[in-house]
Design a protein around this nucleic acid. Structure first.
Lengths: 197, 197, 197, 197
DNA sequence: TAATAATCGAGACGGTACGTCAAGTCTTCCG
DNA sequence: CGGAAGACTTGACGTACCGTCTCGATTATTA
């Protein structure tokens, strides 16, 4: 609710901001990361390079914003059903999202870039991973209250196992991430899905 | 057993080949992937750029060879102990290797590059991932013969879970991969280590 | 008289322009055309290669500008004396200029390059040859008015003979172009110099 | 008539020698000098680069041989008619030859290269220019005996004027060298052709 | 209303790397 | 030893992108 601090001079164009992120997403989708030059983003957004660098320190930071903006909406945690089913639902959503190249490509690019850019690594963890993890953690604790004996596994380990397997398949083995195989994964860690007789 | 096929002309220099891969490893370790230029590799190896491009189509392919050459020796599967202990041992070796930046950095760079280079992706799977997987698969089957009731989990799923969690921590959450936390991971999937009283 | 048309964006650096031409001249003088690389010009001028290629399509075009800029000042037509003496004076100036390697080398390089570069050939003719020719033509017509009977030769042919002999000696036979031999040449075509008793 | 000095080992292939010169001429004709690489000559001649460099010190020397071999046959001096007509005939032959790109291109390339290659310059003068000059000189002396009063011009100057104008037009102004304009040139220097009434 | 100040598009700038090409040398095996 | 084949070093090519900078022009707030 804090007041927008009023600086002198012409205010930054909201329109340009949106155009840049949108152009970044568009170019990344059709051309992959190597085809994503700042010049191209600027040209595609009808914006000068200066305008981009005034807002973001480098190309990866633009990509970071473009990615989180696009994905956050699609990853709202499920709100209905038992805790167990909501957890399974959340994992399915992530799997579904990441099986689209438009999301997988920027994600892996960010992971790669974050290996030699500590700020980016922090941003990626805080703005993408931590969110997913916090949600999952809350649900898992509910699950363990519902079924206190069922899965005595450390919630952190559980999350690492499930999301780890997901990303491993996406990034490395390249296996499909259809719903059936995600279910199989979840069954292996959580026990069989109680909703399937 | 087959004869080394003799092509006409001067044979390619074995010395140059080794120098290039060694230079690639050295530079990658010091500077990370963005600091790894073909010019620099050539200069450091005392070799012309042309000689590099005669052998590999691009920078990633050089890196691929440098990486597999360096790692394969360090990942010899354990040969002693029960199958269960040998499986645990193998996972520990991978974790230990990947916690060294000299191995983690090229690995993640290759994963990233393979997202938009199908040939590289295939090479990475065939020459690194598949090897580890085949070894693990053999051992797991032995484990399941030793303890037929213990872990009825699909071996493929099991491998995805364990290695997935490993790489997830390395690449994304950035958690430490000390022996204790790897043990915790293994315990969660396989049941507690029978060798710890 | 017309306004300098204002293009959008940062204007091209006048300083860089001058530095490039000056570096081109310096390097050509020391090392000859084969030693004149664009990289070297850029380094010597403290300018990026890009800046050179933004202005000129290739090395020869840079050389063309460097050459005409350097020579035009030295080839101002003589303004005093009879028309005949002014014509002789102009030829002497060209001979003198071209006997310096610093002028002869770029000139022959341009002639050579223009054999397979039609744009360069046109530029060379329009910006160097035509100027000299127009001046000569004007003077010759005056000469023929002064001495209507003396030299009924077609002015174009006369110019081809005199300049042709000059360049032939410079480029092909390598003979010296001292003042005496130029005079001998002029005497042969125009009749003996009236100023020498 | 001297004995071919007999060296040990396999004698050099006459066939290769011819193939190289022929390939050099062919490539120069269709592609111009920039498209004339030693690799291309070797490939086109079915010969190894080594074989070329065993015979000539560099590319220009090959070109020199290819050029003189091709032109010498076409420049046999005329043997019939008065000395004056034979001189005119020789000049016409040179003009005709040089108006073919297949001869003009290598010639100018050699002239250009000879500016920074003294050995080549010497070779060009001795093997091409001097021959033409000696022939011309002989004929001119005959002319001056036939018409002792007509043209008291120094023969060297005369040759420089005529050939100079020829090459000037070919290399620099790019004017046509049809028979009529060559005649006009000759008329200007020698007086009108006595064979045209 | 005018001055001030940060923005905007455009595009030039120095720098660095790319992947290609040619020159001339060297090294293999085969005649 | 000559020859074909082809790898080798050197060095330049022309292109692309990065992140910075300078223009004139625009659009706000402040005086």
């Amino acid at each position: 609710m804090r007041e927008q601090e009023q600086r002198p001079g012409r205010p930054r164009s909201e329109r340009a901001h949106r155009a840049i992120l949108q152009a970044a997403r568009a170019l990344l989708t059709d051309e992959g990361l190597p085809g994503l030059s700042v010049d191209a983003i600027a040209a595609h957004a009808g914006v000068s390079k200066n305008t981009i660098y005034r807002r973001w320190p480098n190309k990866a930071a633009v990509l970071m914003d473009a990615f989180t903006e696009a994905t956050s909406a699609k990853l709202e945690p499920p709100r209905e059903g038992t805790a167990l089913m909501r957890f399974r639902g959340q994992v399915h959503r992530v799997a579904q999202l990441m099986s689209e190249p438009a999301a997988r490509r920027p994600f892996v690019a960010l992971v790669a870039a974050s290996q030699h850019d500590p700020e980016l690594a922090t941003a990626l963890r805080e703005r993408f991973v931590a969110t997913r993890r916090a949600v999952a953690m809350g649900i898992i604790k509910e699950v363990q209250q519902e079924h206190p004996t069922a899965s005595p596994m450390d919630p952190d380990v559980l999350i690492d196992l499930v999301y780890g397997a997901l990303y491993y398949r996406l990034l490395i083995t390249g296996q499909d991430l259809d719903a059936a195989s995600v279910d199989k994964l979840l069954d292996a860690v959580l026990g069989p899905n109680p909703e399937n007789t």
